[in-house]
Amino acid sequence: MSDLYFGTDLFSELDRVQRQMSSLFGGYPSSLRSSRSGTFPPINVGTTDESIEIVAFAPGLDPAKLDVTVDKGLLSIAGERTAEQSQLPEGARQYARERFTGTFRRVIELPQQADPNNVRARYVDGCLLITVGKREASKPRAITVQ
């Protein structure tokens, strides 16, 4: 007979242990994929043959107040989201708030093939779209066999 008892739901127990381990190590992510949830703005990073594509989901921001910089292989997105007027009726008290307000800064390490001199950023429908071109030497090319 085994001395181990896991209850009826092993996966919920593993999830609980994972959350405890995450809180134990202080929430220091080792990569973009391991960053904690709730980080603002949430981002997606992808690549094409020509560029690295970054989408930061940041609705309600003034594009003029966004700061996008590239320095030493790091792309930095900084800005501020101000608190909007409350939509609650007169005399009501707010007891929960899920929308982030305040200053933020996200830093993304770019791959070596990124060209820091070829970066474009635009804000469309609440999304900051950043395109970082790739260096010519890193782009795929066809070789003719003779």
Rank of each mutant, 00 (worst) to 15 (best):
Q20G: 12
D71E: 12
N44Q: 10
M21A: 15
Q85T: 12
S22T: 09
Y28T: 13
A64Q: 13
E50T: 10
I54A: 01
Y95T: 14
S31L: 04
G73C: 06
D49V: 03
S35H: 07
Q18L: 15
L66A: 07
A96V: 08
R99Y: 00
P59R: 06
I43W: 00
T82N: 11
P41E: 01
L24Q: 13
R99L: 08
D67H: 12
A56T: 01
L74G: 00
R93C: 06
R36E: 10
G27K: 06
S76A: 11
S35A: 13
S34I: 01
V45N: 02
A92W: 06
R36M: 10
Q87D: 12
M21F: 11
D15T: 14
G46L: 01
R93W: 01
L66W: 07
G60E: 04
D15N: 15
P42W: 03
Y28A: 12
R93F: 07
G91M: 04
L74P: 00
R93P: 00
P29L: 02
E13Y: 09
A64F: 05
A83F: 06
R16Q: 13
V70S: 08
S76L: 02
S35G: 09
A64D: 14
Q85Y: 03
D71P: 00
A78I: 01
E80S: 14
E84D: 09
G46V: 00
P59T: 01
G60S: 05
S30K: 09
T48F: 07
G91W: 03
I77T: 02
E84I: 01
D15Y: 10
G60P: 03
G26I: 05
V45Q: 05
E90P: 04
A56N: 04
V45M: 07
E90F: 08
P42K: 11
L14Y: 11
Q20S: 14
Q87G: 15
F100Q: 10
D49S: 13
P63A: 09
P89Y: 03
